[in-house]
């Protein structure tokens, strides 16, 4: 029986974020909060492993109270339990402080039901770093395996797992002891349209909600803004490029001008076949 924990985050949907061109700030209201798309794959992988090997899937997130919605999404995907840690003292956390807080939550979950495997998404679309996962692994002192695009097998008696880690030009097959932490690529699986019974379960589900005081042995100094070494000092809009020369005339004439630009670089073309 495996106990798998997936780490998830609720994020603003950056795809539809709108910028206020005058003040250069984000109009957060226009960006609805969603489950980080990469994390959906993390949860789905956990659910698939549970189906293969038996066990239980818990999800954990640090975030504001509305993050309950993201947990419910995970229940729709098929998770069994959800834990939200929420507290003002977590606010302003960078990746280091986030990994600390999430680790404390996992330690607490582990006390009741030891955790065999942790799965994170490749990255969040707002933080966009991919650093929290390895950070959690280091804090728990378990091996981090990033860029995982396939879980080959888990051997529960040997307590090992074999995965594929994506490389720039292929993949490597890696074995690790359990427990360990995986950060999964989107390609690891496809998240299917959730079946109706899961929707019902999610609609009724009430996650466990913990504050800092519910966690054990927390060093307050390592939380939130205080525990974050990095600070954002300046935010600006990327400068607009200048623009180039417009080629005028009818299509024929436009192409002729373009051609002379290209043929200026003819050395690029001559070595190529198929011309």
């Amino acid at each position: 029986m495996l106990h798998i924990v997936a780490c998830i985050k609720q994020v603003p949907d950056t795809k539809i974020i709108k910028m206020n061109p005058k003040t250069n700030t984000m109009d957060r209201r226009t960006a609805p909060a969603i489950l980080n798309p990469y994390d959906a794959h993390a949860v789905e992988e956990a659910v698939r492993l549970r189906e293969r090997y038996g066990g239980k899937v818990s999800v954990v997130t640090m975030g504001p109270p509305p993050a309950v919605k993201a947990i419910k999404k995970c229940i729709e995907i098929g998770a069994d339990e959800g834990y939200l840690i929420t507290d003002r003292r977590f606010a302003g956390a960078d990746t280091l402080a986030t990994s600390y807080a999430v680790t404390k939550a996992i330690e607490k979950i582990s006390k009741e039901n030891p955790v065999d495997l942790i799965i994170c998404g490749k990255m969040t679309i707002d933080g966009d770093t991919g650093q929290v996962g390895p950070g959690i692994a280091r804090r728990l002192d378990i091996p981090p395996l990033t860029s995982v695009n396939k879980v080959v097998e888990i051997n529960q008696t040997e307590r090992t797992i074999v995965v594929h880690r994506k490389l720039e030009d292929g993949y490597e097959v890696v074995q690790s002891t359990l427990p360990c932490l995986l950060s999964v690529e989107k390609t690891v699986n496809e998240v299917p349209y959730a079946p109706f019974p899961n929707m019902l379960k999610a609609a009724r589900y009430k996650p466990h909600v913990w504050s800092v005081d519910d966690l054990d042995d927390v060093d307050i100094k390592q939380l939130g803004l205080k525990g974050s070494p990095t600070i954002v000092s300046k935010v600006w809009a990327p400068p607009k490029p200048q623009g180039g020369e417009m080629l005028e005339g009818n299509p024929q004439q436009q192409v002729e001008q373009l051609l002379s630009v290209l043929l200026d670089k003819k050395e690029l073309f001559q070595s190529k076949e198929g011309v």
């Binding site: 299917p192 349209y193 959730a194 079946p195 109706f196 019974p197 929707m199």
Partner: peptide, 9 residues
């Protein structure tokens, strides 16, 4: 009948 798998209620 809903559009989801196992979607009859």
């Amino acid at each position: 009948r809903t559009d989801r798998p196992n979607g009859d209620v």
